[in-house]
Design a protein around this nucleic acid. Sequence first.
DNA 1: ACCTGAACACCGTTCAAGT
DNA 2: ACCTGAACACCGTTCAAGT
Lengths: 200, 200
Amino acid sequence: MAVRPAGIVDAALGILDAYGLADLSMRRIADALGVQAAAIYWHFANKQTLLAAVSDAILAGQAGWDDQLSLEVWARDLRGVLLAHRDGAELVAASLAVGLCERIPDAGAVAAFESHGWQPDEAGRAARAIVHFILGHVIQEQTRQNLLAVGVLAPPTEALDEEGFELGLRMLISGARAVAAGRDSRVDGSDGEPDVSYAV
Amino acid sequence: MAVRPAGIVDAALGILDAYGLADLSMRRIADALGVQAAAIYWHFANKQTLLAAVSDAILAGQAGWDDQLSLEVWARDLRGVLLAHRDGAELVAASLAVGLCERIPDAGAVAAFESHGWQPDEAGRAARAIVHFILGHVIQEQTRQNLLAVGVLAPPTEALDEEGFELGLRMLISGARAVAAGRDSRVDGSDGEPDVSYAV
DNA sequence: ACCTGAACACCGTTCAAGT
DNA sequence: ACCTGAACACCGTTCAAGT
């Protein structure tokens, strides 16, 4: 009968989808399992650690990295994975910030940049920039979904914003190409003038 | 003697800077004012509304938009304003998400894009992409600052990440130029092939 | 090993009643 | 008009004690 960590994570995911992050309390999770809240502390050190495990479960839906994949497909997949669970982006962002996640969503983007010749440091920074955008954008979308569900925001306002996502993505990715091109032209020993001006 | 809304916001900012967002409770704010927690509800409908007012106070430090300003200067100013108060980015992000802020930090960037000929819709989307990146990046920096202060993260890890910020900013801004260039070349009636490929 | 019962120190919010 | 006192319905977490 023993409650297992995986079962606790599943119960938490169920409550998340049904009631949202604000109602995801230790007592509610325990109730869903037919157990006392204190029992969860035998399996998880604290709520943050449990939430990190839930984040990992959400990110487990991410497609594995593949050299064939484009950065855009990878980014759209991450957005989809976050959208698949209510408040998914906010939960993952919080867990990521405190650094308790095992799965790092950046990994695929880092590999993509490195496979195009970026140094590890810069690849990490570029990947994180994209992840920040995706998390922020999806948090906005899911907040709107919640407000629509409660009725404080009324149609025809749409929660999802595909165009906004695609534009931000295009900016980041073609911007990355410009940055790389500027760096290469300098390394190649051209005129020394960067061929990319950063003023908009 | 009456406690005034501005005084409540000031007290909240003081507690935010001294103890962080997690300790910013209605009871603590009331204590700092020598008043009961319930008294605050005469001046603010609820905690969210008060936090939105605090966010507005933080964003009041933003430099006004000026045609002379570059997008980069504007973005660095926003980062500075958020960094000026403990957990400033997280607080502003939360208030912005629920849509209770009076001040919208995007405004300057929207004006910048529009002054370069962008349509209002696209200018808004591009500006929001940049704001999402800035908020996400600064939240990460301030989370690190908190972890360093508590000692769970140890030096030589640095909380601030200027390089990461500058790279992300460069990607977004030169990416915006590329997007605009691609759109113009299409409008101009060139070969119809976009001159910007989106694969990295 | 795994869970309960009960407590501790908090929360946001409401509302009658005071001044 | 503005605030208090007291309550309501919650939190996360700890820990002795049970099985």
